[in-house]
Design a protein around this nucleic acid. Structure first.
Lengths: 203, 203
DNA sequence: CAATTTATATACCACCCGTTATGGAAATCG
DNA sequence: CGATTTCCATAACGGGTGGTATATAAATTG
């Protein structure tokens, strides 16, 4: 039983770059959501034909999961960097401005793949939603742990709840994603972030 | 040229209640989104056949817009009541707890029809998104006017921006909708609301 | 009771969906 | 070179989509 894929290919090598194709697929899912992205959309953007796609990625769901991996890999990076900030306020700043940069970057599709996929999800694609929600939960959990530590360190008053702050930041992030998807400008999102930080406890 | 529909029907009267059918359609759109709701889903929930639906409502898009009217009519009520609160903090309280009640009512589908429809919207249904976004904009505008008045009345410090507060409340509402759609419990949403109110300026 | 007008029910349309079978081209290994 | 293995392109599959034509049933008007 072969576990590893063959390191030396015997037949004709594939003519496209898997990583580039996956990046293209991510953009399509990011723009249209899981169900909104048709195989025709995907193959056209990826520059390959359907049989090639199925041979390389399995099926639509597997392709989405790999695209989601790619998306989260980058996003996780910026979140981890944010959680490494020395103070809770620093964490909030980096998280919100990071989200702002992501959502207002003109090269990115509008909105957040996670929000799009968890909201726009017909019953048939329940497993997609579950996968996305699970990842979102781990992100929230990481925030919670960071803020419990921050509370111990006296970063904010005792009457505010670390779990509440984590939920708050999550909601702000989701709200930004929705407004960005609806066409909000960077200036509008900036004002939202600044207001959120003005309300943030402490300092 | 007849402008008004005939007030006295001549032929066989329809056997179903239009309002009840529309309410059923609203629940389907609310649960599955515009594109996720198929005509089969709709007719089954409404208890009528496709020709009856098309005769009574026109087509899928017209049906959605009427369902959206119905949805907004109720939601607008609670928002207007919220904006009538004497203080800005009262407005925020009523808006957030109103949203909480709406999103955690077990009889309602999860999430917010507006968020679902604006986020989960393939290119073909662009007009749907535009309709939803336009309504959301008017709601935000009403908040903005209320908070500019509140600022003149000294409800919160001068260094906070009324437009920022409106965007903030909108984002909180959207975040609650996303988290509710993802299966958050009422307790979790309550904690989010309480944190939001704890951060609210003044008092 | 006719005649008319409308609602309903069945069936159907062309199209798009995700997925796969088929046939031929191309590159590697012996 | 020959054999083999894999990739690519075309086309088709069954099923679901929004929307509709046709025919029958039912109620109102005269």
């Amino acid at each position: 039983m072969e576990i590893e894929a063959a390191t030396v290919s015997k037949g004709r090598p594939r003519e496209f770059c898997v990583d580039a194709a996956l990046a293209a697929a991510l953009r399509v899912f990011w723009s249209k959501g899981y169900e909104g992205a048709s195989m025709a959309d995907l193959t056209e953007a990826m520059g390959i034909t359907k049989p090639s796609l199925y041979a390389a990625f399995g099926n639509k769901e597997a392709l989405f999961n790999k695209a989601l991996d790619l998306y989260e890999r980058e996003k996780t990076d910026y979140m981890r960097a944010a959680l490494d900030a020395p103070t809770a306020r620093g964490v909030a700043e980096r998280l919100m401005y990071g989200a702002l940069d992501m959502y207002s970057c003109p090269e990115n599709p509008n909105g957040c793949l996670g929000v799009i996929s968890s909201v726009a999800c017909g019953a048939e694609a329940e497993c997609i939603r579950e996968a996305v929600v699970a990842r979102s939960a781990t992100a929230k959990q990481a925030m919670l742990e960071r803020f419990t530590r921050a509370k111990d360190e006296g970063d904010f008053p005792d009457d505010v709840d670390p779990a509440g702050l984590a939920a708050f930041l999550t909601a702000m992030n989701q709200g930004m994603a929705v407004q960005a998807g609806a066409g909000a400008t960077r200036a509008e999102l900036e004002r939202l972030v600044e207001t959120g930080l003005k309300l943030w406890p402490g300092r």
